[in-house]
Design a protein around this nucleic acid. Structure first.
Lengths: 125, 125
DNA sequence: GCGATTTTGACAATCGTTCTCAGATAGCCC
DNA sequence: GGGCTATCTGAGAACGATTGTCAAAATCGC
């Protein structure tokens, strides 16, 4: 059974409060700065749980960190990410879903899953 | 100026000899096994150089490793990767390129670059 | 409140990658 | 071929993100 603890709530809250993607380390630092005596390992565990439950999105940054973000639209979607300020826009892409499924099928691949993210420099940067 | 050393040649060769994506560590192990007293750091450097020169493709595996692969088609392309055996198929996707550029433009993002990879289980797995 | 069970947190361990620096080497000039 | 100098190499240390460990603390059902 999954228990309710203030630590998990704090992580979820801190994640929701952020606009873009955050690393686990950043989130931990922010929580500490905000007065929560929360442990780093706990933040990692909470984030992993959130990601599993579908409440958070995760992706790997170019330098190998895992970044997390509170999911706004629950379903499957992709991101347009500013490489300068980190601002993200969630994008729907039915065309891509279909394309991926079709390409996979054409090559005999089953259970296709895809990674599709677009990076760019946003208007205000 | 860039020098020609047998180490770099060995790395390039070992990479070309492999079919799918390989991690730097794997490549190093393979080279050592093949008799080359090459250093791990050198393999990393050589791979990074190859990637910069566009002679190798790189992507991050789901567990945080950097994987490399000798590029067959020189231009920009994507991959269909078997999550079981690691077999890869290079796929061209003009539609995706256009879609990415369009989505970026629609949101005011400049210099769009995108990550598009499809994972699945291939026919023989 | 009680007890069983899960969660936490400090710290160590791990793992891939990068850094450091002395020594080796490639490429150039003679 | 010999010499010179900038670049490259390799062993190991350093690094940074993440995960494992385990005793102590907290939660939930009763």
């Amino acid at each position: 059974m999954k228990r309710q603890t203030w630590q998990r709530a704090a992580v979820r809250e801190a994640l929701t409060a952020r606009e873009g993607f955050v690393s686990a380390q950043d989130l931990h630092t922010a929580l500490k700065a905000g007065g929560s005596p929360i442990g780093l390992a706990t933040v990692y565990r909470a984030l992993a749980d959130l990601a599993v439950d579908g409440d958070a999105d995760s992706l790997q940054s170019s330098d190998g960190e895992n970044l997390y973000r509170a999911c706004i639209s629950q379903g499957h979607h992709h991101h347009l990410i500013c490489r300068s300020c980190g601002r993200t826009v969630e994008i729907e892409a039915d065309a891509i879903e279909q394309w991926a499924a079709q390409v996979a099928a054409a090559n005999g691949f089953r259970e296709p899953r895809h990674i599709v993210d677009v990076f760019g420099t946003c208007a205000s940067c």
